[in-house]
Design a protein around this nucleic acid. Structure first.
Length: 320
DNA sequence: GGGGTAATAT
DNA sequence: TATATTACCC
């Protein structure tokens, strides 16, 4: 394998083993790849020196063309392995990381092969330089204006990680302040819409209601996504409005009005959430893949200064 | 306009 | 089945 890789351009089109469909997919995928002009030059560091020091990242060793080619070949062989045999190897771990880290969005022409468990060829781009977007992205498959027809928003998949983040935000807002818009802002997930959140919140509330109301959960009817994420204490009854929910479904007036009192912090928190002890930037070359965020006080010390650098405000009171 | 819920669509 | 969308209400 691999001589067809040179200097960043993969001249695909050799279909020795793949079937036509896969080959088409590869070609299609290639079309979406950034060209040389879009890529950061090798000579240019991915992150600024300040940031590097802030994160205690040791300077990147210089990459030569050879290194790049080798990395490209690895990637390609992984991909091709994935395509030509259902037995994924490297690519799988790659996907797993994506699954944990990023949002998973189905493309409009949902392709079970690629999308099924959280991979999407189209979003394998542009998780750039860690600094500007230190958080998740919810790509919609059409942010590259080209091709891909207008299309509606891609379907969002609530990964456990995403859900966890959701739960955390809801928990810290308090159940009564947890409204779609606020949640959306605090989750600070790019591309996540209020509708996404509202929909998920609706489902989540139903789940909570079941938990509280029935006091016993029927595992068979529980959503694994929810059951796998413990419901924070603060969600059980915070708000004093009691869980008046008389399970009354018929009509709705639960306009919870009660003075919400003090909302601790309606401040959007730039994510790198505390939940993570895993590498955040999954896609980009291993170069920055080693960065691990300490969950604990991600927002203190180094991070804080980093955010200052980035002109992001770091919510002072953010203590999860 | 935005939130909540239920029903329905995809 | 999971998620989105819609309708209807507050």
């Amino acid at each position: 394998m691999g001589e067809e890789v040179n200097a960043g351009k993969y001249t695909g089109g050799n279909h020795d083993e793949g079937d036509c469909r896969n080959d088409d997919r590869v070609s299609e995928w290639e079309l979406g790849l950034p060209n040389a002009d879009d890529l950061t030059p090798l000579s240019q560091p991915l992150i600024s020196p300040e940031l590097a020091s802030a994160f205690s990242i040791s300077p990147e060793p210089r990459r030569s063309m050879i290194d790049v080619n080798r990395a490209s070949q690895n990637t390609l062989s992984s991909i091709r392995g994935e395509l030509s045999s259902s037995n994924s190897v490297n690519f799988k771990s790659f996907n797993e990381e994506r699954g944990k880290d990023g949002m998973v969005v189905e493309g409009e022409e949902s392709d079970p092969d690629l999308v099924g468990d959280g991979s999407d060829s189209r979003k394998v781009r542009r998780i750039d330089s860690c600094t500007e977007e230190s958080e998740f992205r919810a790509e919609n498959g059409n942010d590259d204006g080209s091709a891909r027809t207008a299309s509606k928003r891609a379907r969002l998949v609530w990964t456990p990680q995403l859900h966890k983040r959701f739960v955390e935000v809801v928990a810290h807002l308090g159940i009564k302040n947890a409204v779609p818009k606020t949640i959306m802002q605090m989750m600070n997930v790019e591309g996540l819409t209020r509708e996404n959140v509202a929909s998920h919140l609706q489902k989540y509330r139903l789940y909570l209601k079941r938990m509280q109301g029935g006091s016993n959960e029927d595992p068979s009817s529980s959503d694994p996504l929810f059951t796998s994420t413990p419901v924070p204490q603060s969600l059980h009854e915070s708000g004093g409005s009691g869980h008046g929910h008389g399970h009354g479904h018929g009509h709705k007036h639960e306009h919870r009005h009660g003075n919400v009192g003090h909302v601790p912090m309606p401040t959007p928190m730039p994510y790198p959430p505390q939940m993570m002890h895993m590498p955040r930037i999954s896609v980009l070359p291993r170069m920055i893949n080693d960065i691990t965020f300490d969950s604990e006080d991600w927002c203190s010390t180094q991070m804080r200064s980093s955010f200052d650098l980035m002109n992001h405000s770091c919510p002072a009171g953010t203590s999860f």
